[in-house]
Design a protein around this nucleic acid. Sequence first.
DNA 1: CCATTAAAGGATT
DNA 2: AATCCTTTAATGG
Length: 231
Amino acid sequence: MQKVNPLLLRDLKAFSGIELPVLETMLATSKSAFYAKGETFFREGEVAARFFVMLDGFLHVVRTTPAGEQVIMRHFGTGEIFGMAPAIGRDTYPATSVAISDCVALSWPMKYWQEFCEITPQFQKNALSAVGERLQGSQDRIVEMATERVENRVAKALVRLVEQAGKPTPQGTLIDVAVTRQDIAEMTGTTLHTVSRIFSAWSSKGIVEVGRKKIEVLSSSRLSDIAGEQV
DNA sequence: CCATTAAAGGATT
DNA sequence: AATCCTTTAATGG
């Protein structure tokens, strides 16, 4: 396991505003590890043993219903803190998180949570604002689910993916992570068939170019038009 | 408008 | 070859 340079951490959201010497002490107790695409960081209901900060890669957070249906709650990327059960008053993980690309992440035993919050209030502040943003996002999603049509929701999900994992290409923006129709369906509360049909329609209009596990947005303006339309 | 079911073909391992 | 991913069409709420 190579050493992580504390200078790199300064630019990550989870660590912003924290002094270098403090970062050094935090790093001393951390574990840096590689997680292959498809690997699980932790599962829903498990006792929360560690909290994580993503250094590179993407994961999604998924909940499974008793009927076995999956719902993708959200995605996390570089610089974000996740698995922070104590920050929301829990001792088990509320959902499962799965690497959707190869990842490198730092993690700490949960006992350091309290310690970090005491050593540097800024750490706690960062965590609190992360919780706030996520709550906000969840509420937005509830409104979205309750009021918008499927095509709208799929467009919004794509816009979010572009923001999080978009990579510019000569023709537009490629979603730089493998996402299937089923994944989009699990993010938007619909079926893969409907997603497939929507993609086909957008593709023939030249809004996107799609393939197997590949989505490229050719006209982000037309996509956000669809995302913005209310019924 | 959208879910379900069914069928079929291409891609990936 | 087996499994995964996607498309298309028909049907019905």
